[in-house]
């Protein structure tokens, strides 16, 4: 089912958690809400679920305005960070809960409920564990039961709140691939919240980057990484270095020299240059480059993480050199120019 979040605002006792957020989610899409803590990503997910009520704006399920529907009537599947499995029920009872509590007119036959639950258990690769209690399962298994339970009600949309947040790194990676696989097989419209960019970029069709209650950018993993639209996104996704510069007549100046980058479409004035530390070319002389003294260089596997002291103000800037480039470190002084970069004017 398609989802549309239209101009939604949410305040908790005057404290704004979301400011005027709009988002379109296509049917069958796997979407990640990515951001640091406090960015409003979980609030947005809970608003979609109906666990919170928006202060303003609407949420559409298909063409229908669901803003005033209760969580029960939205027919969603919600997976909680800490699983929230019912500890006094077996795995099978947990999965069938959503079906068993339905009014008899909407409730499938007992045998049908059981058949469906066992099928789901098979899908989440936990066949044979239906009689176990949640406390007898590992964290990864519990999260898979929680997912099966959410899918048992055949939800319009599957919502996952930091689904792998409480698991250790190895299990996270396995479950990530497995979730992608399940999504491809079942085709549920799925929204999940994460603060782990690797998880978001690897798993999602599109990533929604959020910060301070706003959506900064929506796009595929490539778009987010290669064409970040704001300093926040550039800094938040992947490694980044930045340098305070000045723009004059379409030329980028660093203190008293041009650094060989054109910025013809930007207005004159102060700005910040962002680039990826590894995405640079070393230059020999310095007619149009950034140059400075190497202060620290640490080698981590095949990469030399190098801190360069540039310019009069002793700004430190970090670049990553590969094995070929590392020879330049011997001189104690390097000159370079970013290959790809973004310049954001300073307001």
């Amino acid at each position: 089912m398609e989802l549309r979040v239209a101009n939604v605002r949410k305040e908790f006792e005057r404290f704004p958690a979301l400011n005027d957020v709009s988002l379109d989610i296509r049917s069958g899409e796997l979407i990640a809400l990515l951001g640091p803590s406090g960015s409003g990503k979980t609030t947005l997910l809970r608003l979609i679920a109906g666990l919170e009520r928006p202060s303003a704006g609407s949420i559409f399920f298909g063409d229908e305005d669901a803003s005033h529907k209760s969580v029960q009537d939205r027919n969603i599947g919600f997976v909680f960070q800490h699983y929230a499995l019912f500890r006094h029920m077996t795995v099978l009872d947990n999965i069938t809960f959503g079906l068993r509590i339905r009014k008899s007119s909407r409730r499938p036959e007992k045998a049908e409920i059981r058949r469906r639950a066992l099928e789901l258990l098979d899908l989440v690769q936990l066949s044979g564990l239906e009689k176990r209690y949640p406390t007898q399962l590992s964290g990864g298994q519990r999260q898979r039961v929680a997912l099966a339970r959410a899918m048992a009600v055949e939800p319009n949309v599957l919502l996952l709140d930091e689904p792998f947040g409480a698991l250790d790194a190895q299990v996270r990676k396995e479950l990530r691939r497995w979730l992608r696989d399940i999504h491809d097989r079942t085709g549920h419209t799925t929204v999940f919240v994460t603060h782990d960019q690797e998880e978001a970029l690897e798993l999602a069709d599109r990533v929604v980057v959020m910060s301070k209650g706003n959506i900064e950018q929506v796009g595929t993993a490539d778009e987010i990484y290669d064409k970040p639209v704001s300093p926040f996104v550039f800094g938040f996704i992947g490694q980044s270095s930045h340098l305070k510069v000045r723009i004059e007549n379409g030329e980028v100046w660093f203190h008293d020299r041009v650094i060989g980058i054109k910025a013809s479409d930007l207005p004159d004035g102060p700005a910040t240059l962002y680039f990826r530390p590894h995405d640079i070319e070393l230059t020999d002389g310095c007619s149009g480059c950034i140059a400075g003294l190497v202060t620290v260089s640490r080698r981590i596997a095949g990469t030399w993480h190098t801190e360069v002291d540039v310019g009069a103000g002793h700004e430190k800037i970090e670049v990553s050199l590969n094995a070929d480039q590392s020879a330049a470190l011997k001189g104690g002084r390097i000159a370079f120019r970013p290959r790809h970069y973004r310049i954001f004017p300073t307001n």
Binding site: L51, Q72, N75, F80, A84, L85, F86, R102
Partner: peptide
């Protein structure tokens, strides 16, 4: 309130 929210999200009254 996690367990209660889970139950409500599954359609329980």
């Amino acid at each position: 309130t996690g367990d209660e929210e889970a139950a409500l999200s599954l359609g329980a009254s």
